[in-house]
């Protein structure tokens, strides 16, 4: 068995606040294998976003160990091992869509020709070909979020970390983007970490669902999905799907019960 891409052992993170310490993560252990699509689900305050940010070296754990690609998160970040998609698209209004996707490529020092190549390729990947010269305000919210995914894909990191990327979008757009994300995942074979608070979204997308609960933030259940990798939208009406959704819901409820 190959070594996991991301491996957490007894991870702790305690924020010191004016109201005393907040245990955002406590004793979190998890392995993510190459090519996994892992969803983190739980109520707010369960540490799912914090966990993702620790993987991205945007937060520092106060205990335990975490490796990304076999090295520390800081080294992984410096090696540009992952692309990160935030809750808001956060495109620079003064750059075109193409210019926004070029941003990481410019920072990482790709040649002009290489930049143009990659921008065209990832725009194709998120079905935004032809929008390169548009400005962000000319695009809908869903298209902006696709552009931000393209930006995270542009430098071809093996890992994609997504923090509630579709949280602010309406249900119909969300369904569509979920479908696109799955096909993108199938084509690029990336390892994806995906934070959400939508049960159907988590079950539809994931090969592995990590259920978390708050105070202290911890993992209460890890569900290996039996669903095939190829998933049409109507798989959501199948008994298998509903069964997993049920188990996720139970896990979330259990996390709430012992408060």
């Amino acid at each position: 068995m190959p070594s996991p891409i991301i491996s957490a052992r007894d991870l702790d993170l305690t924020f010191q606040t004016a109201d005393g310490p907040v245990h955002a993560l406590k004793g979190v252990s998890l392995d993510i294998e190459k090519g996994d699509f892992v969803s983190f689900i739980g109520p707010s305050g369960c540490g799912k976003t914090t966990f993702l940010r620790v993987m991205a070296d945007l937060e520092q754990p106060t205990g335990g160990s975490l490796t990304v690609n076999g090295v520390s998160p800081a080294q992984a970040r410096e090696a540009r091992a992952y692309g990160y998609v935030f809750q808001a698209a956060g495109l620079y209004p003064w750059r075109t869509i193409g210019g926004n996707i070029r941003l990481p490529l410019e920072i990482m020092g790709y040649s002009k020709a290489e930049q143009a190549d990659r921008v065209a390729r990832v725009l194709e990947l998120v079905e935004l070909a032809g929008f390169e010269r548009k400005f962000p305000w000319q695009l809908s919210g869903g298209m902006q979020q696709r552009a931000s995914i393209a930006r995270a894909l542009a430098f071809d990191a093996d890992i994609l970390l997504m923090d509630e990327p579709f949280g602010a979008l309406d249900e119909i757009v969300r369904d569509h983007l979920n479908e696109q994300l799955l096909s993108l995942w199938a084509r690029t074979e990336k390892t994806i970490g995906f934070v959400t608070h939508s049960i159907p979204e988590a079950v539809y997308l994931s090969t592995k669902i990590v259920v978390m609960s708050p105070r202290p933030g911890r993992i209460t259940d890890v569900i290996e999905s039996p669903l095939p990798r190829e998933r049409p939208l109507d798989i959501r009406d199948s008994p298998e799907f509903l069964e997993i959704a049920h188990r996720v819901r139970e896990g979330l409820r259990a996390g709430h019960m012992d408060e």
Binding site: A56, D57, L58, R77, E78, R80, Y82, G83, Y84, F86, Q87, A88, G90, Y92, W94, L103, P104, E106, I107, M108, F155
Partner: peptide
């Protein structure tokens, strides 16, 4: 914070952050 975090994920240097983000944002 999100825009600064984004640059951090790219491992951008301070001067890259200045020219690419802070300066245009201040216009």
């Amino acid at each position: 914070a999100m825009q600064l975090d984004l640059l951090r994920t790219y491992n951008a240097s301070g001067s890259q952050g200045f020219w690419a983000l802070r300066l245009p944002a201040s216009a």
